[in-house]
Nucleic acid binder design. Structure first.
Lengths: 291, 291
DNA sequence: CACCTTTCATAAGCAAAACAGATGGTATCT
DNA sequence: AGATACCATCTGTTTTGCTTATGAAAGGTG
């Protein structure tokens, strides 16, 4: 049966075009490579190299085997990296919960870099409403959360301010409020507002009730859907609303009583006194610069 | 450095839950497995199994390594399969050209089975207009073709009838012809027809000009696009048109002068006297039952 | 054209690794 | 308590992979 070392020889000879060069690179005698390749050829019952030319060239069969050998070695390298990662103490698994309004493009970027830095750590990304994010962290169901404060949460968690996310007030273009150029508080009051709250009914104080009538959902995606169906007006994060406003699918309302941009605070949350491994610490520090 | 054999032991012990069972399975002494795992643990500097229990159980670290070991062995198995495949004489590469109207669901099915039967043979699927299919085969730029006959082609190729593909006449729902319930030849004559021809201008005799005016494209996808833009009427294969007709995005025309379903012949094409390896022969035979 | 260098294959000897077999300790089941 | 199945460890043997040495063939160079 062939060995991993023989496969390494194969790719190395193919890359360098020389048995001797391969031997030098792997720190072995030239004859070791010669025998290694020969044994591999016997094992596979295929001729991999044509030795009649000046430099050994891959046969067509050899070329096909080479591709497969590379695939084996890639996995073996992954195993090595994984073993080193375990040895460093990297966590096996991290669960990150974010409010779905915070699924920003930058987040994908951060997670991408995370994957490169901690290849053996599996990441689970969960989305829920901010109050539920807090609850999952408090119950230890997730390691790290990103959510909107202030919300009610107990003292088993620590939070860390990381920035503000701008919101805009929107409604469907056919909504009565879309016809108004200047909107006062009592105008909003007369129309149904769409709001977020957690599964247990906990609301985010900052995103609170303005209207007399309200419908609820537990995700911004749900909010967006209802708003696009013309069921009411709502506040949406700018990054979600902007492309739809530009495409004419949503109407941005000019609200006179808060003409300054309205940006609720975003915070990281994690269990107090939790011992964090390298991967979790890295992710926490990186997420502080998300906004 | 660890070996493939040690990785096999790891997964086998994890699967059977026993060093002894693994030894029996691999045809070795129990002590060999015991030492093999021990060596692997030394190499990775990780404890993989907890031996304090009745049956050896994977440690959390062991579990993570196990997943990676499996990945390595999957690739190694692929290499074995590939080597056997090469040994059988399977081709390294097959290029199949089909008229894009013949991208049937069944074709995907056939190719899927091909992949399972000939895992080491790479398949390239090219689409072009029927006249170009014939030309590619004649020039030896592809191994096997499926296209509509009759078209002009030289005697360097063989063809083999495999069935008929039903066509329907369609136009955009807002097209003038969509309002007519019964359409005669001279009605069609007055409206622009959308037609297929190859890059060198070769048309398929069967799919020929009926109207006074015609626009051309070299793919049925192009035909469909132009038709959906309301640029004219055309014949489309039933399987492409049916879902769009059902969705109201296309209108099926009732043409009085050919009320029998109109189904041009479909044929396989390949170079005369070409020596076919097992994979190509298999594919040729399977494609004969495509329709 | 002779000479030199580089390349690979092969043979022989050696050291390390893998292995089978035997032994002993331990947990589980009857 | 006895039987059984399991694993670790030890010992001696076999196998494998390696190095060194040598020869043949192919380019390159004066």
């Amino acid at each position: 049966m062939y060995t991993l070392e023989q496969l390494r020889m194969l790719v190395d000879v193919a890359d360098t075009g020389s048995f001797s060069a391969c031997a030098r690179k792997l720190g072995k005698a030239q004859s070791a490579v010669s025998q290694g390749i020969a044994n591999l050829e016997v094992d596979l019952d295929l001729q991999l190299f044509d030795r009649s030319t000046r430099i050994p060239t891959l046969t067509p069969d050899g070329h096909r085997i080479l591709d497969m050998a590379r695939a084996v070695l890639v996995q073996a390298t992954q195993l090595d990296i994984g073993a080193r990662s375990i040895h460093k103490g990297d966590e096996a698994h991290i669960r990150l919960v974010v409010d779905d309004a915070l699924l920003l493009p930058q987040l994908g970027n951060t997670l991408d870099r995370f994957g490169k830095a901690y290849p053996a750590t599996r990441l689970e990304l969960v989305t829920s409403a901010s109050p539920d994010v807090a609850e999952m962290i408090a119950k230890g169901q997730a390691d790290l959360g990103i959510f909107f404060t202030p919300i009610a949460f107990d003292d088993s968690t620590d939070v860390c301010f990381i920035g503000n996310l701008p919101f805009v007030a929107v409604c469907h273009p056919s909504h009565p409020l879309a016809k108004r150029t200047e909107i006062a508080a009592h105008d909003l009051f007369q129309h149904r507002q769409l709001l977020i709250r957690g599964l247990q009914g906990q609301a985010v104080e900052m995103l609170n009730l303005v209207s007399a009538q309200a419908w609820w959902t537990n995700s911004f995606q749900g909010l967006l859907h209802m708003c696009q169906q013309g069921l009411g007006w709502t506040y949406l994060p700018d990054h979600m609303a902007a492309p739809l406003i530009a495409a004419g699918q949503l109407h941005q309302m000019q609200v006179s009583f808060d003409h300054k941009p309205w940006s609720p605070p975003v915070e990281l949350v994690y269990r107090k006194h939790k011992v964090m491994g390298p991967a979790l610490s890295w992710l926490k520090e990186e997420l502080k610069t998300l906004l």
